[in-house]
């Protein structure tokens, strides 16, 4: 396997596309949260790949990725707590059930 920038970008694009597809197609809120993580991780992969091959300052990309990981954890916490709140009210975590607001 050659370790070129292109192969990393290819994988991260595929991850990104899978994440966006999941956001659009899945109806389960936890599945949506997982798709969200795929998008964030594809961005992280992009950053480390660019960091290895192109970035002038070799710390910039790594620092960025550490921040992405930390903020993604915070995001998952908030997301799960809101999902729990919704579950207590509706006894479902399917987004189709959250349909009272329309138009």
């Amino acid at each position: 396997m050659s370790q070129s920038l292109e192969s990393y970008l290819f994988i991260s694009s595929a991850l990104f596309a899978a994440g966006v597809y999941g956001m659009l197609a899945r109806r389960n809120l936890v599945a949506l949260l997982i798709s969200l993580e795929l998008i964030l991780n594809s961005a992280s992969l992009n950053f480390v790949a660019f960091n290895r091959f192109l970035l002038a300052d070799k710390t910039a990309g790594q620092v960025f990725v550490v921040f992405i990981i930390a903020l993604a954890a915070a995001e998952a916490t908030i997301g799960l707590s809101l999902i729990l709140l919704l579950y207590r009210k509706k006894h479902s975590i399917n987004i189709e059930e959250a349909k009272e607001l329309r138009g």
Partner: peptide, 20 residues
């Protein structure tokens, strides 16, 4: 909770796209 969840998921997806 419903609006909060919608806001979170749209917003988080938008910031994921921003990161990319």
């Amino acid at each position: 909770a419903e609006a909060g969840v919608k806001y979170l998921f749209f917003g988080a997806a938008a910031s994921g796209v921003f990161l990319w």
